[in-house]
Design a protein around this nucleic acid. Structure first.
Lengths: 208, 208
DNA sequence: CCGCTCCTAGTCAAACTTGATTAGCTGCGG
DNA sequence: CCGCAGCTAATCAAGTTTGACTAGGAGCGG
């Protein structure tokens, strides 16, 4: 799974209705271009693709107020809402060493209820541990790990990363259980998108 | 940069001359299908693409000994050798949170000289640290980090991963400086590919 | 009010990835 | 010795990603 669909669905969902450029701006606001493949082409493609698949509903709109080609606004269908939560849960649970997917899911984790978020993160830890033992058991040759030479460093690297990820996830669970952040059904949700016309404070000030 | 070109160049280089299925088998032997997008399609595509670009030289060969369509053997051109080392150095130095690229580079690090490997890894650490401070300085709003709400967890996640990566890299530098592994120009190189006809001990025993 | 630059919004071709599928050969049960 | 399962080796179409490019308006200096 690539992160782009989750990001785009999340952005459109928070707006209720949004056009491509707005989504693009939100992703930049979130810094997504730093840690995911959120290029314009990918974003517009994802919007069109998901509209074709019935996950988004497209509304043709008159040429925009501020120059440029005519805009299209999108909103989630019911299938889109389901797809969104499916992707979100999946991203939180599965360990595939894809930083971008996890980052995107973190940005939307408060759309879940607190208890479910914790439960999914626990499953994530279990997945990491399962993956870890599969790798260690499978890739250590019978003649002992010395057999592997420098190739063993690859495994070493995976394991180190996996352990780091598990540890961090435990920390996050702790923070969430201690009451941090506002989750679904707990009051005024955190606003993570830019209002129409609001300036993006992070635009182009990037450390690229 | 995707890892596939580096992997394919590395495999072909170790054989001197190799056909697609051989490369495919090596990558499986290395476990690359676990941590990179090394699917058959990608491998054959990379071979053809690189042949078109003059990085590899293609030799049409009579239909294979063991059934199937006619095979094509490839070998590196001089440009290919340069490209290989360029990709390898680049993968070691640059920090882009892509596990697959780093894993591939680790598998080929001994093609460099020991001193250069250490030097590149030091540069890697510097790159990680630069990235880290760019992120912390840039993405903490003036009103303080509380402003970010749960979005701050994304940053937290990056930072944790970056720090873990730096720490691991320091460990690797230590091992290399203590004389581990056999690097270029230090004698009989480690053989990391399967000979023609040799059985792949990891084939299909996969923990998928 | 001319020309220039910047911003908005999106398109496009080329490259890459994916997963299914093809096609030839070997070995083996019946 | 027929058929067919399974292996070898590679291709293909569909989907995705990339990064450069288009095109129209706004602001502004002179």
């Amino acid at each position: 799974m690539s992160a782009i669909r989750l990001l785009v669905l999340g952005a459109v969902r928070q707006h209720g209705r949004a056009h491509g450029y707005q989504v693009r701006n939100d992703l930049e606001y979130w810094g997504a271009h730093e840690w995911s493949n959120a290029k314009p082409g990918s974003i517009y493609h994802a919007l069109k693709q998901m509209a074709k698949q019935g996950v988004l509903l497209a509304h043709e709109i008159a040429p925009s107020t501020a120059g440029g080609p005519p805009r299209t606004e999108y909103e989630l269908t019911e299938a889109g809402r389901e797809e969104y939560f499916r992707l979100l849960r999946d991203a939180l649970v599965s360990y595939d060493q894809k930083m971008d997917v996890m980052s995107a899911a973190l940005g939307m984790i408060v759309d879940l209820e607190r208890a479910e978020a914790v439960e999914l993160l626990r499953q994530r830890i279990a997945a990491i541990e399962a993956w870890r033992s599969a790798v260690t058991e499978h890739y250590v040759p019978e003649e002992g790990p010395e057999q592997l030479g420098h190739i063993g460093e690859i495994m070493n690297f995976w394991i180190h990363t996996a352990d780091g990820g598990a540890e961090w996830t435990r920390g996050l669970i702790g923070r969430i259980e201690s009451g941090a952040y506002v989750f679904a059904g707990e009051g005024e949700p955190f606003v993570g998108v830019l209002a129409e016309g609001q300036e993006n404070p992070y635009a182009t000030k990037d450390p690229d």
